[in-house]
């Protein structure tokens, strides 16, 4: 499903904000108008935390899938339930799909329409994920985008781009790095990066962690 699969999933015709999000926005609008808060510095602060808001949940999912073949099978078959086994159920009710990288196929996730993102497992989206250049180029030129991220794949590896929607969120299961036989889940977790689960990066190699 490269590109535009939105007809199926984006068929509701308006955005939805939860009651909580409405209240947060109401407060922020008022405080901004009264110049108590500056949305730019709010964004900057949030950006500081984006890397630590939750990708650790995704890290645990991936590390477990790497070390437990049964879990991996469940994860690929029904990611929503397999992830909720670890207690990170998507509280907004979105359906999770995990796609596996192989030597033949590399997967990359984008939301071409907005910034749908698997918050419960990956936390806050990085700023580039929401940017127009990433959203448009990921589909048109995924190999070029990967190159910008410093990732070069063999020409024989196909790149498939998965377009997130309000209802379906994708998580990439990267390939387990070689030379990690016998590693514990915690050790493996050290190798899992946020970008490797979006597909714009690869996991760290064993030599890169102490």
């Amino acid at each position: 499903m490269t590109g535009h699969d939105h007809d199926r999933h984006h068929d509701h015709d308006h955005s939805e904000l939860s009651e909580t999000e409405l209240r947060v926005r109401a407060l922020e609008s008022i405080l901004t108008e009264k110049e108590y808060v500056d949305p730019v510095s709010l964004d900057l602060l949030i950006e500081l935390y984006e890397k630590k808001i939750g990708p650790r949940n995704g890290v645990r999912v991936v590390a477990k899938a790497w070390s437990d073949p049964d879990y991996r099978a469940r994860l690929l078959k029904d990611a929503t339930s397999a992830i909720s086994e670890l207690d990170y159920s998507g509280r907004q009710g979105e359906h999770m799909v995990v796609i596996e990288n192989t030597p033949e196929q590399h997967n990359m996730v984008v939301c071409t329409l907005c910034s749908c993102y698997p918050h419960p497992v990956l936390g806050l989206p990085p700023v580039w994920y929401k940017s127009a250049p990433y959203r448009s180029r990921a589909v048109a030129d995924p190999r070029g985008v990967l190159k910008d991220f410093g990732v070069t794949l063999p020409d024989t590896t196909k790149i498939r781009v998965w377009d997130s929607t309000a209802e379906i969120r994708y998580l990439v299961l990267p390939m387990r790095p070689e030379g990690t036989e016998g590693w514990s889940e915690d050790q493996l977790g050290e190798l899992v990066t946020r970008d490797s689960m979006i597909g714009t990066g690869l996991p760290r190699q064993p030599g890169e962690v102490a």
Binding site: V24, E28, V37, L45, K52
Partner: peptide, 27 residues
Amino acid sequence: DADGPVFREPWEARAFAMALALHEAGV
């Protein structure tokens, strides 16, 4: 955690940051 607050969803971080801003403004 050791580095500071952790959040589950973006709105939580916004709510957190707003409290910071209001405190800095002396509210």
